[in-house]
């Protein structure tokens, strides 16, 4: 197998140039997919049988929850790459993904709580999914806090990589234990919207919206990573040339 594609990722300059080319496409895709998915979900999809129109929150709640979990997985993978191959770009990806993941976690928690009010009659219940999501948010806070506390950039990234990996090993255990705890304390009387009963004109917009969230995540991640690459490589001549070009254009 040809591994040159992998080695290219070790070059910040290559990444900066390539990501600059991808960014507009990803951004446009994110806006289009989100606009179509959310508008379809809000205005064109039929109402759910029992929850009527309040179920339309699903089109933001589920994608955000999806992304929040995928983001932690991405961080764990970046952590492995960073620790095994010492690739700096993986460090950058890991640390820049953490705040976005935390925000998406926050979105899924808030939208879930708001959805809970008309459905369950209360904003917060200690339901297994909500609780796992809350714990995931705490895990994100841990990674962000550790990254901020260590002043040396390289050790901060490596420490975050170790923590993300430990967290990733723990997440399945946490998830199962929380589910176990939940069945222990309250018999599952309410299951969140049976997905099997969703018709195509309900789940298609959901799929589009999930894709839109993925594109959005990729866009923001690339934006943050590009800035961080510039910061880290500020001594390199190509960064100086880039800064001169960009700030010259602004004036």
């Amino acid at each position: 197998m040809n591994w040159t594609w992998f080695h290219k990722w070790g070059s910040p300059k290559w990444f900066y140039e390539m990501s600059g080319r991808w960014l507009p496409w990803l951004g446009v895709a994110a806006i289009l997919l989100l606009a179509v998915g959310l508008a379809w979900g809000l205005a064109f999809a039929p109402p759910e049988k029992y929850q009527l129109d309040s179920y339309r929150i699903i089109y933001i709640h589920v994608p955000a929850a999806f992304l929040a979990q995928s983001c932690y997985l991405l961080m764990a993978i970046a952590g492995v790459v960073s620790l095994v191959w010492k690739m700096k770009l993986a460090d950058v990806a890991l640390q820049q993904a953490a705040p976005i993941g935390a925000w998406l976690c926050f979105v899924s928690l808030v939208s879930g709580a708001i959805w809970g009010k008309p459905t369950w009659g209360t904003y917060w219940i200690w339901d297994a999914r909500l609780t796992s999501m809350l714990i995931l948010l705490f895990l994100y806070f841990g990674v962000i806090a550790l990254g901020n506390a260590i002043s040396n950039r390289d050790s901060a990234a490596k420490a975050c990589a170790v923590l993300a990996l430990v967290g990733a090993v723990n997440i399945p255990i946490i998830k199962y234990s929380v589910e176990f705890w939940n069945t222990l304390h309250q018999p599952a009387t309410f299951t969140v919207t049976g997905k099997a009963s969703m018709s195509a004109d309900m789940w298609l917009p959901l799929l589009i919206s999930v894709l839109g969230f993925y594109c959005f995540f990729a866009t923001v991640l690339l934006m943050r990573m590009r800035l961080e690459v510039l910061r880290r490589e500020s001594r390199a001549s190509w960064v100086k040339a880039e800064v001169a070009r960009l700030s010259g254009g602004n004036r």
Binding site: G142, A145, L146, I150, I174
Partner: peptide, 27 residues
């Protein structure tokens, strides 16, 4: 181990580790 080099690691340690303690607590 991750916070040993930091001046004020105590609170940070709790923040990092308490979520990981949840399975033990539940069981």
């Amino acid at each position: 181990a991750l916070t040993v080099g930091l001046k004020r690691g105590g609170l940070l340690l709790a923040l990092l580790i308490l979520p990981l303690y949840i399975p033990v607590l539940i069981l």
